[in-house]
């Protein structure tokens, strides 16, 4: 079970959170100009890396705020937690230990 540092409430058990999947996916719009391929990619194509994954979480049983998490998918180490409007950080020390 992960220990997630909610930016508003501090460290809390994973039980209190819900993961919303990959973050930084831009929503294509307006509908009339979006190709089927682009829309399909937006809906279904995800990175699924072995390594640092940028995803969004919500403190569902707490403050109900969303935020971004950079989590290593092999070690589950959380490399960074940052606001929804912030760009993804990069280059973490030791992230490739495995």
């Amino acid at each position: 079970m992960l220990l997630i540092h909610c930016p508003w409430c501090g460290p809390r058990e994973e039980l209190e959170f819900r993961c919303g999947g990959e973050s930084h996916i831009s929503r294509p719009s307006p509908s009339a100009t979006v190709s089927d391929t682009d829309w399909g990619n937006y809906l279904f194509t995800r990175k699924n890396p072995k390594g640092v994954h940028y995803e969004r979480w919500v403190h569902a049983f707490g403050c109900r705020r969303w935020f971004n998490v950079a989590r290593h998918t092999a070690t589950h180490r959380i490399e960074a937690i940052y606001a929804m409007h912030e760009a993804a950080p990069s280059a973490f020390d030791g992230a490739d230990a495995l």
Binding site: V58, R64, W66, M84
Partner: peptide, 13 residues
Amino acid sequence: VAWMEEWLQCEWL
């Protein structure tokens, strides 16, 4: 309500 919060906080800030 969770659905609305997600759109407001993640997409239409």
